[in-house]
Amino acid sequence: MPTVSMKVNGDTVSGEVEGRTLLVEFLRDTLGLTGTHVGCDTSQCGACVVHVDGKAVKACTALALACEGQSVTTIEGLAKNGALHPMQEAFRENHGLQCGFCTPGMIMSAVDIVKRNGKKVKEATIRAELDGNICRCTGYHNIVKAIQDGASKM
C-alpha cells in the first residue's frame, strides 16, 4: 500500500492508504480526527470542509494521496494554545449550531469566507458563500449572525 505524509494541524503525520482513500477517511479513520464529518455522497453538504494549504476544500472529494506534502487544518486544529478561534466563540455566543453535525464544516467555511471577504462581510455575501454547506437545524439565521460576529473579531 502507498504511504502518504502531510501536515495535519501542524503535526507531520503519515500513514498507509489505498489509492481510493479519501482525505476525510484518512483524517477520521487513520488519524482519529473525527471532528470532520461526512453528511453526503455527492460533495454538497459541506460537513467535511477542511483547509488544505489554506484553501477550504471538501475532504470527502479529495484523495488522501493528492494531499501529499500539503498542510491540512481541521476543526480540531482551529483553537490555538487552548484558546478558541474567534469564529468558534462566535458560533457559541450566537447559537449558530444545534445538533453540531454540520458545525465543523460550517466553521471551517466561515473562517475561509472571512479570510476572502474581510471583517465587514455582508449578510448577502455570507449567504451566497454558504452555498456549499447545508444545515438542517438552524435555518441559517444564527449561522449568518455568528459569521458576522466572528468576522469582526478575527
Binding site: 476543526i75 480540531e76 478558541l84 457559541r92 449550531l97 453540531g100 465543523p104
Partner: peptide, 21 residues
Amino acid sequence: VARKEDHRFITGNGRYTDDIN
C-alpha cells in the same frame, strides 16, 4: 445563556455514532 454542549461541537469533539470504533 450560551449552550453548555457547544464546546465539544465547535472543537470537533462531539461523539456521534460513526465517530465510535
